[in-house]
């Protein structure tokens, strides 16, 4: 059996459970549903899996107006109508007006492809139900031309969701489900290392400490995520800030440099500054404590 396994790539750190999820989906040929905090690399997973398996990635980005049949095919009635008025010869064959969707594209591919259905929760509540049969059997029927399109190679289907809508049980039952939890410090270190291999060790550990401290601040509207950390480190590197300046111990410099990259929300920045200010006051009082 030429079973290729996914173990993460040189630009993507996959934890054990995530690796297991992808490999299980590959072996048992089931769709894989991925949820997780924004910025934990859900969409990127599909890209990296495609890269690791050396196959093509077909992306289907879902919007609130997306309908399930658009992923299969669309019948372009308007151009047919126009062609008929112009007397075009094409008009006699209806197949000329069938526009293939992403699912069709994935089914037709000679090599097993990776199909990403991105942010499925953006679509209408009925959307996942409309795709049940197609994802289960990996085939569908084209009414206009009366042909059945079946997958030559069952594609690996990766579906991401941001939890804006609950997905129907019947749909969930057919999928594997994985929740990408927020990485712990050691995983985070690996992730940063993969992206910035030449980063100085002490700067990295200081930056991570500040980052996890900021995440701990209660009441933040949007906690900074992995992608924000990577942006921030990029900025730190560009500004060439030494590790010492990130030290939170000095109360006068308690606000980390360039925190705008970490906190994306005005209210959060205010809240953070206020907390830092309070802390500073507290520690100042502590210092003058008379004996």
């Amino acid at each position: 059996m030429t079973q290729s396994r996914f173990t993460g790539t040189d630009s993507y750190v996959a934890t054990d459970d995530l690796t297991m999820a992808v490999n299980a989906a590959l072996t048992l040929e089931r769709p894989l549903l991925i949820k997780g905090e924004p910025g934990t690399g859900k969409t990127q997973l599909a890209e990296e899996v495609a890269k690791a398996l050396d196959t093509n990635l077909i992306q289907w980005h879902i919007k609130s107006t997306t309908k399930a049949h658009q992923g299969l095919y669309e019948y372009d009635a308007v151009s047919r109508l126009r062609d008929s008025q112009l007397g075009d010869e094409k008009v006699h064959d209806i197949a000329n007006y069938i526009v293939k969707g992403k699912l069709w594209e994935a089914f037709e591919s000679d090599k097993r492809s990776v199909l990403l259905i991105d942010e499925i929760d953006k679509a209408d509540i009925e959307f996942p139900n409309d795709l049940l049969q197609e994802l289960d059997k990996m085939e569908f029927h084209v009414y206009e031309t009366k042909q059945v399109i079946a997958a030559r190679q069952r594609p690996l289907v990766i579906i991401t969701s941001n939890n804006e809508k609950e997905l129907p049980d019947a749909f969930l039952r057919r999928c594997f489900f994985h929740y990408i939890s927020f990485p712990d410090t050691s995983t985070m270190e690996q992730i940063v290392n993969v992206h910035f291999p030449s980063l100085k060790k002490d700067l990295l550990s200081e930056a991570l400490k500040v980052f996890f401290d900021v995440r701990e601040v209660p009441g933040l509207k949007k906690k900074p995520s992995t992608s924000e950390l990577l942006d921030w480190i990029k900025l730190l590197l560009a500004e060439d800030i030494p590790a010492e300046e990130l030290h939170g111990d000095d109360p006068r410099k308690a606000i980390p440099k360039l925190h705008g990259a970490l906190l994306k929300n005005e209210q959060d920045v205010h809240l953070f500054e206020r907390l830092v200010f309070l802390n500073r006051k507290k520690s100042a009082q502590g210092n003058v404590d008379p004996r």
């Binding site: 054990d16 459970d17 297991m20 999820a21 490999n23 299980a24 072996t27 048992l28 549903l33 049980d169 969930l172 039952r173 999928c175 594997f176 489900f177 994985h178």
Partner: peptide
């Protein structure tokens, strides 16, 4: 999945695979 040896020989793997296939939320 167990039949196809996905969760091989370790409890950890079994835990991950069981969660993956049984829990959907």
């Amino acid at each position: 999945g167990l039949d196809k040896n996905l969760a091989g020989y370790s409890v950890d793997d079994f835990y991950h695979f069981a969660r993956l296939s049984l829990v959907k939320d």
